[in-house]
Design a protein around this nucleic acid. Structure first.
Lengths: 229, 229
DNA sequence: CCACTTGTCAAGTTATCAATTGAGTAGCTG
DNA sequence: CAGCTACTCAATTGATAACTTGACAAGTGG
């Protein structure tokens, strides 16, 4: 009773989750995983780490209960262990954005100057899609992420291929591009590429994970062979 | 554009908040601060750290934007910088509890075996208080925390003084004891002390911070001399 | 069964962190 | 202003953490 060592052990266990969130690289991993499961190799390429290093980060995330795995052949797919993990990352992000001025500065440096065109809110896009309006919804994330789940009717053109595949975009319709979330550069960059090509496009204010978390419709794969719930 | 260094800098800034939550001692500090502002000295005594060490932890929390300070005389009072900080700690706690089996084991070791009597839920207590039922609501936190805000009509008897002050408790009324939250031992221990004295009491399932966060009524000091908002 | 792919493990280096100690500063009080 | 209280700062020590490298293991396919 009143045992200090026991109390410390308990709070150290809570801190295990904190420690998992104590590395920018691990948060990047979570941000990618919020868009669907990925192999170690795929994650390593996305965040620019060695496979061994990524593997170790993922182990730590797994031990903190934030990430789960499944094996398929000799690939191991990692995913967020629960929706609450994304909720937590979002809470952390919101808190940091509101309380740390530095975040704003670094975000501007990474994402580029302020948007010329206002981003489209989730609500606005959802309403316009529900109304059957003829928009081009453009998913500029890597193809795997589109495959794992995307906005209904979205066209997938990963950012790296956008410049060569401009012709695929239907003319005369308004374009709304989206990616992983508010701190993902893909959509920002896509708007720029489109603008350079003389096309006008707007950006969805945040990404697929937020859209899905808001309970809006998401087109998921048929999950051939994947149990899942 | 696509600048990896800039991206890493941004996510490292998010990780600053994660790092703040990466120490069990700092989480203990947040848990105490959720019950009201405290001086460095007071916090050090609560969590069993040296003053210098506590001071350094608090600086880190301040730099992560989780804690604010005000000076009064030569004491410096620290408080949670925003309600979202408590929300975040609660989210982390919930996640850890649901995903880490170890938490349950350590909590049992610290708080003692399962409750003999079911704890009272927040909703139940709120309803019964609103109905004007004659309960003894017993605040067993340190006196400063009671002073900083407490449940309406709550009697303050800090756990350490409970055994000598049993006479102050009105007879014949049901007792509900509360403290800082679900992982605070005070209320658990108080129930035990009361049981040893032949009194039957139940524990509120969580503490004052959760009660306040739920928007239930809290008796606050008149804030004499404190600006506040 | 051999080669290949995909990940993990172990060892080692460098950097970062927690906690201690002792000195130093800000503000009050007599 | 001397002495006190309350806190911060700087230097140090021991413990963790991040990342690299090279070896190993598990699963696949020829």
């Amino acid at each position: 009773m009143g045992n200090r060592a026991a109390k410390q052990a308990l709070f150290d266990e809570f801190a295990r989750v904190g420690k998992a969130l104590a590395s920018g690289r691990r948060i990047e991993l979570l941000d990618v995983l919020a868009n669907g499961e990925r192999t170690v190799d795929g994650l390593a390429r996305q965040v620019g780490l060695s496979v061994a290093n990524t593997s170790q980060h993922l182990q730590l995330l797994r031990q903190a209960g934030l990430v789960s795995t499944r094996r398929d052949g000799n690939s191991i797919y990692h995913r967020l262990a629960a929706p609450e993990v994304f909720a937590m990352w979002r809470a952390l992000r919101t808190l940091a954005t509101s309380r740390l001025a530095e975040v704003e500065r670094l975000a501007a440096a990474y994402l580029g100057a302020r948007d010329e065109l206002e981003p489209v809110t989730r609500e606005e896009l959802a309403r316009r899609l529900a109304d059957g309006e003829e928009l081009v919804v453009l998913d500029v994330r890597p193809a795997e992420e589109h495959a794992a789940g995307h906005l209904p009717g979205a066209v997938s053109i990963p950012l790296g291929e956008l410049r060569e595949r401009l012709a695929e975009l239907p003319r005369g319709r308004e374009i709304v591009a989206y990616c992983r979330g508010p701190f993902c550069a893909f959509a920002h960059d896509a708007i720029q590429v489109l603008a350079d090509a003389g096309l006008s496009a707007r950006r969805l204010e945040d990404g697929l994970p937020e859209w899905a978390a808001a309970g809006l419709p998401v087109t998921r794969p048929l999950a051939a062979g994947r149990g899942g719930r």
